[in-house]
């Protein structure tokens, strides 16, 4: 039995087969009455949360910076896509992919600017900058009448399960390839010691720009998908509480681990649904979990570990940390 699981763990075919099967299942759900609308909604939220969690993990886990502004990127993506679908684009098959790409691009552009700010400051001060960024995005949106101001917008419901699954796969694929590339090593080197990394010839600025922009891009993608499934977005849905939720997922699942991101997002979303009856007390329980995690298990469930399926072949048999 154990040998079977070990060979399954090392199998290079398992993940592609799972992806194909998962996609087939999602398409089937879309056309056949296999699961009800509520379950479908929860599954889409799981997907969006996986994207958010994996993309924040790139900055907070792999690069070891502390960003609390991920909800800001989500807001940028959500509003950019909502403007696309409500005001600019006619209804068509290409409406959703274009809107999501546009949302991601807008977020990535702002993420690039934030990366420029991160050159001079790090640690606590970078956390402050991302916090300020989040607040600025929120109050800017509140003041722009074109975006509905505090009243919010009502984008059409376009996101379906296959699209959500598609974007989850794309996110994980790109981030996984990035992390195990030359840039990924640069990002990890910055986490361990920025000054030493710089001295060793790591291009710190390039790596930071890439990490922040990629993270922001997928944050925006998640926001766009969220806007096109939730029917209603307003500035309040992207406040610090939303950022904390993403942080809980990252630190629950595990820092610097894609398998951890998936696990964290799944556990969090299901727990969040299960605790629906608690009302506002839910917002007490979530940060409490975060505090307890930090005290007793600061790296999360899968911290610094990775499922063998995500590792490149050359690293399967080495003991090196990702």
């Amino acid at each position: 039995m154990r040998a079977f699981f070990e060979s399954l763990g090392r199998s290079r075919m398992a993940l592609p087969i799972l992806v194909v099967l998962g996609f087939a299942f999602c398409v089937a759900c879309e056309f056949l009455p296999i699961i009800n609308t509520y379950t479908k909604g929860v599954l889409i939220m799981v997907g969006i949360n996986i994207i958010l969690c994996a993309s924040l993990n790139l900055v907070n886990g792999y690069m070891g910076e502390f960003s609390v502004g991920h909800a800001g990127f989500m807001a940028l993506g959500a509003y950019a896509s909502a403007v696309m679908t409500i005001k600019w684009l006619p209804a068509s098959v290409f409406e959703l992919p274009l809107a999501v790409l546009f949302g991601g691009t807008v977020a990535a552009a702002i993420g690039f600017l934030l990366a420029l700010l991160s050159f001079k400051t790090r640690g606590d001060y970078l956390a402050i900058i991302t916090l300020a960024f989040l607040m600025i995005v929120k109050s800017a949106v509140e003041n722009i009448e074109y975006l509905g101001g505090p009243r919010g917008m009502t984008p059409p419901v376009l996101t379906n399960l296959p699209w959500a699954f598609f974007w989850v796969v794309v996110t994980l694929w790109i981030i996984r390839n990035l992390v195990y590339s030359k840039f990924g090593r640069a990002i990890t080197a910055i986490r361990e010691d920025e000054i030493a990394a710089n001295a060793m010839g790591v291009r710190v600025r390039e790596a930071k720009i890439l990490a922040f922009s990629t993270s922001a891009f997928f944050g925006g993608v998640a926001g766009a998908l969220y806007a096109q499934v939730n029917f209603f977005i307003d500035p309040k849905s992207f406040d610090i509480v939303r950022s904390t939720e993403i942080l809980v997922m990252v630190y629950l699942g595990g820092v610097a681990s894609l398998a951890g991101s998936i696990l964290g997002a799944v556990i969090f979303t299901l727990l969040f649904q299960a605790l629906q009856d608690l009302g506002t007390w839910r917002m007490v329980v979530m940060p409490l979990i975060l505090v307890l995690l930090m005290i007793f298990r600061p790296r999360g469930i899968m911290g610094m570990k990775e499922l063998p399926w995500f590792l490149p072949k050359r690293e399967l048999f080495t003991k090196r940390q990702p």
């Binding site: 904390t244 007490v284 505090v291």
Partner: peptide, 10 residues
């Protein structure tokens, strides 16, 4: 920092 943020939200 995360703990402090969490305590505040609690």
């Amino acid at each position: 920092i995360i703990t402090a943020l969490g305590c505040g939200l609690v």
